[in-house]
Amino acid sequence: MSTNTANPSTDEVLIRVENLRKSFGDNHVLNGISQDIHRGEKVVIIGPSGSGKSTFLRCLNLLEEPTEGHIFFEGTDITAKGTDINAIRRKMGMVFQHFNLFPNMTVRRNITLAPVRTGFMKQEEADKRADELLARVGLSDKAEAYPASLSGGQKQRIAIVRALAMNPDVLLFDEPTSALDPEMVGEVLEVMKELAEDGMTMAVVTHEMGFAREVGTRVLFIDEGIVKEENEPGEFFANPQNPRLQDFLSKVL
């Protein structure tokens, strides 16, 4: 049973992935993945390292260009030639394992740069939005600080705020807690949980099984470049069918 009933996913397909394949030279990383992500869903993607789960996520906003297959976002084929990928990315936020904050600017500027530069907001609006979002993650006092002075957990919360500033329709998380010291994982997961409760559509690559179980509406197990098993979290963890998944879960749980 899914524990998340506050914001059930809708029938509207936000991201449609059709037969996605990706190779780096002779290295076939993704071998045909087809998936629909509905608005409001929180899809958690797990799998062994090197399985292609990060590559899958990075294909969704074309940080990696698919070798084959199609990706539709809100009905637009983003893999088609001539699609304005910058416009698409403004609706798809991404949070990285290593935060990737811009070290040469203050936290405030980190957050407001994209909304202002893309013409989405004026500087004053963006500043106001930054203040609101910073208050939400409890970092109002860090607006004028530089990233180098922040802890890992603070950096990742700022990175989430930076993605949220563009008002995205979906947030992609690429192992958001993997680079954090253990005592800082909680504060980041807490922010992600709150986002989930607010109804944000999320795709999360993670090793946090507790998070997958608690927040996910659907869990995907990617191995050898394909989705080997998917299910709602209760059944997924209680009754894994695929032997590879059983093996994987026995190691991580």
Binding site: N61, N86, G93, M94, F96, N100, T118, A163
Partner: peptide, 12 residues
């Protein structure tokens, strides 16, 4: 990662 972060926000 700096370029990726910038591009993922929709900047050219």
């Amino acid at each position: 990662g700096q370029m990726e972060a910038g591009r993922s926000l929709g900047m050219d």
